[in-house]
Nucleic acid binder design. Sequence first.
DNA 1: CGCAGTTTTGATTCATCTCAATTTGTGTGG
DNA 2: CCACACAAATTGAGATGAATCAAAACTGCG
Lengths: 271, 271
Amino acid sequence: MKIEIPSLQTACAQCNLREFCLPGDLGNIDMDRFNTVLGGRIRIKRGHHLYRSGERFSAIYAVKSGFFKTDVLTDDARDHVTGFQMAGEILGMDGISNEVHTCNAVALEDSEVCLIPYADLEGLSRELRTLQHQLHKVMSREIVRGHSTMLLLGVKRVDESLAAFLLDLSKRLTARGYSPTEFHLRMTREEIGSYLGLKLETVSRSFSRFQEEGIISVEQRHIRILDISGLKKLMTRIPANPRCIVPTNSQKMRRLQGTSRGLHEAAVLSA
Amino acid sequence: MKIEIPSLQTACAQCNLREFCLPGDLGNIDMDRFNTVLGGRIRIKRGHHLYRSGERFSAIYAVKSGFFKTDVLTDDARDHVTGFQMAGEILGMDGISNEVHTCNAVALEDSEVCLIPYADLEGLSRELRTLQHQLHKVMSREIVRGHSTMLLLGVKRVDESLAAFLLDLSKRLTARGYSPTEFHLRMTREEIGSYLGLKLETVSRSFSRFQEEGIISVEQRHIRILDISGLKKLMTRIPANPRCIVPTNSQKMRRLQGTSRGLHEAAVLSA
DNA sequence: CGCAGTTTTGATTCATCTCAATTTGTGTGG
DNA sequence: CCACACAAATTGAGATGAATCAAAACTGCG
C-alpha cells in the first residue's frame, strides 16, 4: 500500500522549517544521520487522508507544505476536529501507543509531508540524545497543546475561543515568516466550529461581530487583524460577575494557603 | 527544595501496578536497571500540590497510591481540570517540552508517587529499547486521552459526558482489581464539572436523573452502577434529528467517496 | 455541637443551537 | 462564456439546554 522510496537527499539541513520541526536544533552531524532514516515525501491532495483512524501505525509525518486537520469520531458518527497542523508540525503521534492510528488526518489543501518511519526513528534516537530529546519535546508539546484546547472547549465563550484561535494561528504563521495580521483560513467555518465546540453559524456570527467592532476584517476566508490588542482583550473575559473574582473571605484564604506550598511539605521517603 | 533519597529497593518488580505503569512489560533484567534510576517515593497529603504550573520540571511521577487531578488556569483565573490520575498513571509529562510544568497536579486524597528523574530516564531509555518504547507509549496514550476528552467537551451533552466519565472510571478501576460497579468518587461535583465543561449544579442534576432512571445509585460520592448497558447507551446520543444521520443524497456520497482512499492515491516521491 | 464545605433542588435567564432563508463564491458542462 | 449546481457563509427568528441565582439539606470535621 505505502510505497517508501529511500530518501536520496531529503535535506533537513536546507529546510527552512527545521527549527519548528522534529530535527529542531540538531547539529550538522546528527542532522545528516537523521536524514538517513527519512522515508521520502508524500503528496496528499486537498480533501484526501494522510491516514485514518484504525489504520496500522508505522510512521509519523512532518508537514513539509500545506495544511491539515485531525479529527476523531464518536460511536454515533459525530466528529470533532482535534487540531490543525501547518508546515513543520508533526502528525501521527497518536498511533504510537497501540500501533494503530486513533484519528484521521486530512489535507485541507494540496500538501506534502516527510515520512519518518517510526521504528527507525526510535532506533536512531537511542543513539542521538539530541534527537531523542527533540522527539520527547514534540510529544510533550502535543500534550500541552491538548490542554490549551481543552481550555477553549471547557471554559471559553464563543468570542473568547475564536479570538484565541485567530491569535494562535497568527502566532504560528508569524513564526514561519508570514504576516501576523493577514492570512487565509484553510478550513471552513464548520471545521473551526468543530474544533472550538461550536456550530458553524455561531462561528460566523462571531466573525461578523469582530468585524462590526473593527477588530478584524473578514472576506470569506481572508482574515486581516486590524486591532491585535483588541483581539487579545477579547480572549480574556471581563470578570463581570463576582464568581470570577478571587475569593476574599478568611476561610477560603486559609484553605488556599494550606495548599500552596507544593512539594516543600511533601514527605520524601526512601523507598 | 526537593529532597531526593536514592531508592534502596523501590521494587517495581513487586509492584502490582507494574503493567499499567511506565515499566510495563519490561523484563526482569531491564526492570532492575529501571529501579536504579528511581528517585524514591513522595507523599502528598490531600489537597496539596505535587507540582504547580510554572515550576521547573525535572522529573515525572508515577502514582503509587491515591488519586490526583491536573488543572490549568486561564489568564483571567478561571480553571479547568484536564484529567484525573489513579495508581499506575504518570504525571508531569507536560513539563518535558519547555522544562517547566504547565499545569498543576493536586492530590485528591493522601497519596504517594514514585519520583522518576527525567534526565536519568532519558539516559536509561537510550540503552533499553523496551523502556524507550514504553515511555513513548505512555506519552502517546496521553495524547490520545486528550483527544477523547476533547470529544467529551466538544460534542457530548451533559448526560453523555457524565456517562462516559463514569464508565471510564469504572474501566480504569476494574483494570486495577476494583469493582466495576461500585466505587467512591475522589473529586467534588465541581471538579467533575470542570473536567466535563459543566457547572456543578448541572452535574448534580445529571446524577439525580441517572438515579431516577435506575441506572446508578448515588449516595454522596459513593456510586453504584446498576445498569451498565443502560449507562453505555446514554453515552451515545439517539440520533433524534436527521442531521445526525449519514447523508444519503448522491452528491454528498460522491464527495465522501472521493476522500476515502487514504494513502493509496498519495504520490510518493523520492526526496 | 456547630460550622463550613458540598450537594441537591427549584426558578429563571441567557448563550448557543436549531431551523430556515438568502447570499456569495466556485467549479462544470453545454 | 454563461447558466447551473452545489458548497460555504451570512443572517434572522425562535427553541432549548445549560448557566445562574437562590435556598435548603446534608455531611464530616474540629
